[in-house]
Amino acid sequence: MSLLSVLSNGEVPMAVKVHDLSITYRTTFERKPTLKQALVRFGRGQRAVREIEAIKNVSFDVRNGTSMGIIGSNGAGKSTLMRAMAGILPPTTGSIEVWGRASTLLALGVGFNHNLSGRENIILGGLAAGLSRREVEERAAEVAEWTELGDFIDMPMRTYSSGMNARVGFSVAVHMKPDILMIDEALSTGDAHFREKATAKMAELRESARAMFLVSHGLGSIKEMCNEAMWLDRGKLMMRGDPAEVVKAYMKFVKVKKSESATEDM
């Protein structure tokens, strides 16, 4: 526990503090809104946007040395919360404070430009994240080797399989020497060998990073890798505490809902 520098008053320093956070965003019905549709809608007097309340009054704080698992059903706001903590989505009300550089591996991974090679995407991702060119070039070689993709690393990313994509994404996130690591559903597409390697790497990072957030539907890996867990449901924080207990409560809740809907069907 050498990394846990303890403050003079005996408290472990804070890594992330979320205060009364609500996120409401407006989005359009169409996947690709166009002026044409806007005019048609305007003619009919319809509203073209709908509001989504993704997070409702969530408060929590995370101290250094925590690895926090976040569980919840689809659409519970897990990914939105991660994006907000990474500074990608602005809070509607409330505040988020983060001490340290966050590295994110969110649901979609890296590889935004599929015409570029894996290596080029790694470099671009690193530069966007604010590393200097020298740092990025050093790390790109390290990342490329760690992915074990061989020649594929210099091929356009459109030729990659989803598992290969996940490998690149994960490698980038863990090699950026983050203070706070956020991983969203990253390990679901890797093969057995890579999953094992990734698990080992995450255990290693838990020693060096200040805090880690893991979103997963794999409740087993939450129990295994995290020392705290949070359960979100429809944007609300339902429970926070020991992973085993939170998972148990979540399982119970899901089962209850299931039986209710089952009775409705009859």
């Binding site: 907000a84 500074g87 009300t93 505040s95 988020i96 404070e97 983060v98 001490w99 604010g130």
Partner: peptide, 15 residues
């Protein structure tokens, strides 16, 4: 804190 939004070490995100 608002000035610190894009600083590398401490981040504050508010509305």
């Amino acid at each position: 804190a608002r000035d610190a939004e894009f600083e590398p070490v401490y981040h504050y995100y508010g509305p």
